Simulated assay, not measured.
Amino acid sequence: MEFPKLRMRRLRKDKIRPLLKETKLSAEDLIMPIFVDENISSPKEIPSMPGYFRLPIDGAVKEVGEALEKGIRAFIFFGIPSYKDEIGSSAFDDNGVIQKTLRKVKKDYEDAVLITDVCLCEYTTHGHCGVVKDKVILNDPTLPILGKIAVSHAKAGADIVAPSGMMDGMVKAIREALDENGFEDVAIMSYSAKYASSFYGPFREAAESGYAFGDRKSYQMDIHNSDEALREVELDLKEGADIVMVKPALAYLDIIWRVKEKFKVPVAAYNVSGEYSMVKAAAKLGFLKEEDIVYEILVSIKRAGADLILTYHAKEIAEVL
């Protein structure tokens, strides 16, 4: 059937459009990042991420409570510790900033899904995601440390651990460490396809995770490659990943699509700090209507195949949803 008998606009009337939405976005699709700073007693705004704050531990607990009321159920925590060293030992300190936060949140909000970033960059003096020797990031010596971090987080109440360092074998090392310590039910959400992107700048300010030398291209993925992402995801799944992640999201919608189409597993996408800050800057200048553009961006990520979206817009868009 062709025009004029077939008219696609018939289904675009205001009353009919909502019935035919192919992609639906809800607050339950969102994971809210929270920066917990052990060194402050009141919220501290992040200059490059307007409207977003580092929070003291009690502030993080309060933030979880407020977000739960808006329908957000899942939270990922990034820590700014009181001390750093060469191997990031504060990351697996049972009295560390994330561990203390998890215990407090779990006590007050048992139904919240608590996810933790398992990496070294926020806890090391050099700011890299692995052990360093002579300015070389060493893969295999890093793996046992990641296992220790994951176990420490699980003990404190993490429901899901999220290794983000792109070390080869990290999922296997963490799965084995968790299982050996009785945490078989703690899930792994791996940053499986994490690109060496320019969109991370504001996050590095927020988490104080900038690197002292070089860059992260020796372990994060080349932005030109997509087949490589599928190889990375396949390896992580074989090692025991329960959820795989693509990061960033907006410039990598094709990767989200390819991963979902090939593997049919739970896929998360990280709507990263640079994407957030660009929207905020454009909205401040009056170039975009912020609420509409945020909704459209998140729908596009969901439409590409993401089941879960980590986004700094979570709290504000949950009010709209």
Results as ranks from 00 to 15, higher is better:
M221E: 11
S41P: 15
K284T: 06
S82H: 06
D168Q: 14
V244N: 07
C121Q: 05
I174P: 01
T116H: 07
V64C: 08
A150G: 10
L20E: 03
T125H: 06
S89F: 12
E180S: 13
L25W: 07
I309A: 03
I309E: 00
E234N: 13
K107T: 15
E316T: 15
I223S: 03
K100L: 14
I76F: 06
Q220R: 09
T116Q: 05
I98P: 03
K289Q: 13
V259M: 08
I174D: 00
G182I: 00
I72Q: 07
P266Y: 06
A206D: 02
Y52D: 07
A60Q: 04
P202R: 00
I57F: 01
V105N: 07
E110R: 15
E184A: 15
V36F: 00
V246S: 06
K155W: 11
F92A: 09
D254K: 02
I137K: 00
I72R: 11
I40T: 11
I80Y: 01
G305I: 02
S48E: 07
K284L: 15
G274M: 06
N95Q: 15
G147I: 11
A268G: 10
L321M: 09
M278N: 10
I98F: 14
A187K: 14
G59V: 08
D94C: 07
D242H: 10
Y195D: 01
T101N: 04
G71L: 12
A207C: 13
V131Q: 03
A268M: 07
G274F: 04
G182W: 02
G286K: 10
M32V: 14
D215M: 07
F183G: 10
E69P: 09
D215P: 12
K84W: 04
A112R: 10
R7W: 08
A207Y: 00
D14T: 15
M32P: 12
A27H: 03
K262M: 10
N225C: 12
V36R: 00
D168P: 14
N39H: 07
L19N: 08
V294F: 07
V265Y: 05
P56M: 10
Y270V: 02
Y195A: 06
F183M: 09
T125Q: 04
R10H: 07
D168H: 12
K194C: 06
L102R: 00
I87K: 13
I72S: 09
F78W: 04
A60S: 13
A314C: 08
D242G: 12
P18G: 03
L298N: 01
I98G: 06
G79Q: 01
N95A: 10
E2Q: 14
D307Q: 04
L253K: 10
M170H: 15
E261G: 11
K172P: 08
I137G: 00
A193R: 02
S41Y: 13
E45T: 11
A67Q: 02
E110Q: 15
V267A: 08
I76A: 08
I174V: 04
V151I: 06
K172H: 12
M189F: 02
C119Y: 03
L250F: 08
A74H: 01
Y312R: 02
K172C: 14
E180R: 15
